[in-house]
Amino acid sequence: MIKAENVVKLFHGYGTTVRAVDGVSTEVERGEVVVVIGPSGSGKSTFLRCINGLEVFSEGHIIIDGVDLADKKTNINKVRMEVGMVFQQFNLFPHKTVLENLTLAQRRVRKRSKKVAEEKARALLEKVGIPEKAGEYPSRLSGGQQQRVAIARALAMEPKVMLFDEPTSALDPEMVGEVLDVMKQLAGEGMTMVVVTHEMGFAREVADRVLFMDEGKIVEVGTPEHFFTEPREERTKLFLKQVL
């Protein structure tokens, strides 16, 4: 489904170059849930953003469903239709109602009629548990509700892959659960997911595989059991000791 080959992303600052992603290679199978963990600044977000082209990587290849993002002829908008993304800060469109947030891209990108798009949107709001908020503006919703709307907005495009970048980090603790529940449900339905998170409970329960990143590199890969029982690398042990 997703194949990353030796991906490098450089950021050029004043006289310095940061290797935010430094030679990452991995594969994500269809229906697999991969959780990415690692300390702050280790390049998790940057790697995730490379997968849907929000960052243009400097070297390597990312192949999604047979399409190589490094290929100049690739239409990035086509790829993004198939790769949904959920952000830490929700990034809902504040000037549009919840329903409009869900229908806009369906209509502009998928070229669906208003009726079809709204049916789809209402069904998804039902699924994430807030059908009654369709007419509200995002600013009137709680953080947890906003993030669920953001997930529904991404799902409305019927993506093949969903990327989550710390979806619960900006939430008050009491709202984390409702968002994780939606994500668990999604995983249960067989969605291919790449999730950057500090929620170790979620990783343990849902992940098929965990990647530990540090300084732009994948340091260790394994099942959740492996990570929580017998981590191999010193850096992994140190990190897990801090977060657990």
């Binding site: 908008n77 993304m85 952000f87 809902l92 806009l104 891209a105």
Partner: peptide
């Protein structure tokens, strides 16, 4: 906020669509 552009682009909207709608 740049997050607005990123959200729109990640949904597959083109830059002109993002400008006009978002």
């Amino acid at each position: 906020p740049p997050g607005q552009t990123e959200a729109a682009r990640s949904l597959g909207m083109t830059m002109p669509q993002t400008m006009m709608d978002i």
